[in-house]
């Protein structure tokens, strides 16, 4: 799986910018195991040396991975299977008892699901755009300049990322209540920005760190102002970084539960996280509805994720940071 070698953001580890090979999967024989029958790698560079192992080790390896994959796949798989069963069969153990799409029909036509979906999309998309937009210049400044207040800003960003929801939720609730922002998408957007902005700024700094300073210097030589350099030369190079940052904040906001539950109350204002809870609680247990809604939420998310996941590793190794 040579995904990471194709991803554009690989100048992530500081050394990698000049030596992309470093992010290629290295074929290593790090674990116990003897020489294996050689297997052709797919699409990877011919290994310099093949980790080798015996049939037994090979079996163990596959067994371990299979068990892991099974555990990882089963809950979502079961959710999917259940969503096609009628209500009375929700907990039956058979794979397909009576295949039906009734649950989906019910979710889409008889519940506010689509409204919730719209709310979630609106809130999360706006949050993501605003967060990336607001924080990118800061990421750049932190990466390139030294200025008074820089250290404290870095610290602020770090500490803010540690904030438990519990420390802000009450004051935010009271303030939003005062300004009439509860139960409004705007309120939740502002709340999510408290999470997304510090995080995006920090992450962007990591990405900018991976762009060679030589580029800035060439800009200066050409007589560009720092803003010009940032806007014309550096930002275009940081596009993949922007994308990954955006993706992360998207995913985080999409799955947020606590603020969404406390701040959004009207049936029409719920987000998906709040809406899904209304199907299954102490007094109502519409598992059949819940499973169909869950699948409808999970599939687009998984598709987006599948598309973006090849960048994940890049994001994770982003930036050698040192203030």
């Amino acid at each position: 799986m040579a995904t990471q070698s194709t991803q554009p953001a690989q100048p992530l580890r500081s050394g990698a910018a000049t030596e992309p090979a470093a992010t290629e999967p290295a074929v290593t024989g790090t674990a116990p195991g003897g020489p294996p029958p050689g297997r052709a790698g797919r699409g990877e560079r011919p290994p310099r040396r093949r980790g080798e192992r015996g049939p037994l080790a090979s079996f163990g390896l596959h067994a371990g991975l299979l068990v892991g994959a099974f555990i990882a796949l089963f809950p979502p798989f079961w959710l999917l299977v259940t969503s096609f069963k009628p209500r009375s069969e929700s907990f039956s153990l058979s794979l397909v008892s009576e295949f039906s799409l009734d649950n989906y029909d019910h979710v889409i036509n008889n519940t506010a699901f689509l409204t919730w979906f719209g709310n979630s999309v609106l809130i999360v998309v706006v949050t993501t755009f605003l967060a990336v937009f607001i924080s990118s210049t800061t990421g750049y400044a932190l990466s390139r300049f030294r200025f008074p207040g820089m250290r404290s800003l870095m610290w602020t960003l770090l500490i803010t990322q540690m904030f438990p929801m519990a420390v802000l939720i009450v004051p935010l609730y009271n303030l939003m209540s005062r300004y009439g922002l509860l139960n409004q998408p705007v309120g939740l957007i502002v709340t999510y920005l408290t999470i997304a902005v510090p995080f995006c700024a920090w992450m962007m700094k990591g990405f900018f760190d991976t762009i060679p300073v030589a580029i800035d210097e060439s800009g200066r030589v050409d007589g560009l102002t720092p803003f010009g350099t940032y806007w014309r030369l550096v930002l275009p190079l940081a596009k993949p970084g922007l994308a990954v940052t955006a993706f992360y904040s998207f995913v985080t906001a999409w799955a947020e539960v606590a603020y969404a539950t406390a701040f959004m109350t009207g049936e029409q204002n719920l987000t998906l996280a709040g809406g899904l809870q209304t199907f299954v609680n102490q007094h109502t247990q519409d598992w059949h509805t819940m499973t169909a809604a869950a699948v409808l939420i999970a599939v687009p998310a998984a598709l987006v994720f599948g598309y973006a996941q090849r960048h994940l590793q890049a994001g994770l190794t982003a930036g050698a940071t040192k203030s």
Partner: peptide, 23 residues
């Protein structure tokens, strides 16, 4: 007409009432 689960109803009304956005 909005049907809300009995379970969370008291909480939800209490969340909504002080915001001016209650039913």
């Amino acid at each position: 007409y909005v049907n809300i689960g009995w379970d969370g109803a008291q909480d939800r009304f209490k969340n909504a009432a002080p915001t001016g956005d209650a039913p």
